[in-house]
């Protein structure tokens, strides 16, 4: 089966773009602006929850990367103490938890229905496959939350 020339050109160009995207995702180092993954409880959260609003701030699973994005920072900007992730955080206080080893960490977390929060810490993104997987996961997460 032969395609008309304009279609062949279009298919070829599309394949080149896809291939380029995959190569870019695999070979371009992942750059983080800081080591910290920050989650904040906004001011007024307690009042909104009290009024019946369902507010989820922490995802069920948080992904970090050894040596690159390895510090979980939880900050309470509300006016009352909050159980946030694995600990009680006072108004205006932050909790900064570093991770040094790649592993899956389970924390008690009363903010989640399951009572558990998972932090998955990945190995440093040094291989093309690790970078590709990381970017694909990030993209999927963005699409799902869009």
């Amino acid at each position: 089966m032969t395609f008309p020339r304009p279609l062949r050109t279009l298919l070829g160009a599309s394949a080149a773009v896809v291939l380029g995207g995959v190569l870019w995702a695999a070979f371009t180092p992942v750059v983080f602006d800081s080591h910290e993954e920050l989650f904040e409880i906004p001011k007024g959260t307690w009042a909104r929850r009290r009024a019946g609003a369902k507010i989820e701030i922490l995802p069920q699973e948080i992904r970090l990367v050894v040596d690159m994005r390895n510090i979980l920072v939880l900050r309470n900007l509300d006016d009352v103490p909050q159980i946030f992730g694995p600990t009680l955080i006072m108004p205006g206080q932050s909790f900064r938890l570093p991770f040094e080893k790649a592993a899956e960490y389970q924390f008690e977390c009363s903010a989640h229905l399951s009572g558990q929060m998972t932090v998955v810490v990945d190995e440093p993104l040094t291989s093309p496959w690790a970078r590709l997987r990381w970017r694909a996961r990030r993209a999927a997460k963005k699409v799902l939350h869009a």
Binding site: V31, F32, D33, S34, H35, E36, D67, M68, R69, I71, P86, T87, F95, R96, L97, P98, E100
Partner: peptide, 12 residues
């Protein structure tokens, strides 16, 4: 990536 390494090994 930039940023100083953490001083404490646990949560602060």
């Amino acid at each position: 990536a930039s940023g100083a390494p953490p001083k404490f090994k646990s949560g602060v």
